[in-house]
């Protein structure tokens, strides 16, 4: 049991969107092994982002549990959830969500400021290939570079789990592949569990485990014995 990083049991999430009740998760269960590279696959509205938010402690489920190693995240109060997000989780978003008024380095620093055991910022920025772009503002960088900053921001916190929501969704083909390469490298070099959610089925080829979702339910969990290198996948 000790190598299970995340255990999700019968997770349900219903929420109100205007006048409509959305059943985003309908009782999903699965496990993630420590150090794995997981891809959650599914079309828009399948509940993957909601799942990611539940695991990341960004939102509370309607019912069900999320275990992170020995701890039940779904039992956490507001303060414990904040500490959990601060020290255990790193987020990467589709649209980077960088602070426009801060340089690349300052955006990373923003994350390391508050956590207990951060990595060296300059080393991480070097690893994501931004050594010479540290003092640039987001508006002075390309989409790929901005996503690298977002990844550096998540990794520099030294979290156990990296949650990436459509990290290549806003990028072109080659930049998207370079970002995937970066995520794989981080998974390997820093031994981080990485969970990527995407609607792009090709990306599933680089994962150790693929979780396929549709309409808030897990359709299939596929174990991939021989994950491909990001450079080799096509879409």
């Amino acid at each position: 049991m000790s190598n299970i990083a995340v255990k999700v049991t019968d997770l349900k999430k219903y929420y109100q969107m205007g006048e409509v009740t959305v059943k985003a998760l309908r009782g999903d269960s699965f496990e993630i092994i420590d150090g794995e590279f997981i891809v959650v696959l599914g079309p828009s509205g399948s509940g993957k982002s909601t799942l990611l938010n539940m695991i990341g402690g960004m939102d509370q489920p309607t019912s069900g549990t999320v275990m992170f190693y020995e701890d039940e995240v779904t039992q956490y109060n507001e303060k414990e959830l904040t500490q959990y997000r601060r020290n255990k989780i790193g987020f990467v978003f589709q649209f980077y969500n960088l602070m426009a008024n801060l340089t690349a380095r300052e955006n990373v620093e923003l994350a390391t400021e508050i956590c207990s055991d951060p990595l060296d910022i300059d080393e991480v920025m070097n690893d994501v290939g931004l050594d010479d772009r540290k003092s640039h503002f987001p508006s002075q960088m390309s989409g790929g570079e901005q996503q690298r900053v977002a990844i550096a921001r998540a990794v520099a916190k030294n979290p156990k789990l990296l949650l990436c929501d459509e990290p290549t969704g806003a990028l072109d083909y080659s930049t998207g592949k370079s970002i995937l390469r970066l995520l794989v490298n981080i998974n390997e070099k820093y031994n981080k569990t990485v969970m990527v959610i995407t609607h792009n089925a090709a990306i599933g080829n680089i994962a150790d485990t693929v979780i396929k979702m549709r309409s808030g339910e897990i359709e299939e969990i596929i174990k991939n014995e021989n994950p491909m290198a990001p450079e080799r996948i096509e879409w």
């Binding site: 507001e78 904040t82 997000r85 020290n87 987020f91 969500n97 508050i114 916190k157």
Partner: peptide, 16 residues
């Protein structure tokens, strides 16, 4: 709104 969400996702508390 989204920036605040990002800050909170990074672990910033409500007070911060």
């Amino acid at each position: 709104r989204m920036t605040i969400g990002v800050l909170k996702s990074m672990g910033y508390t409500n007070t911060q």
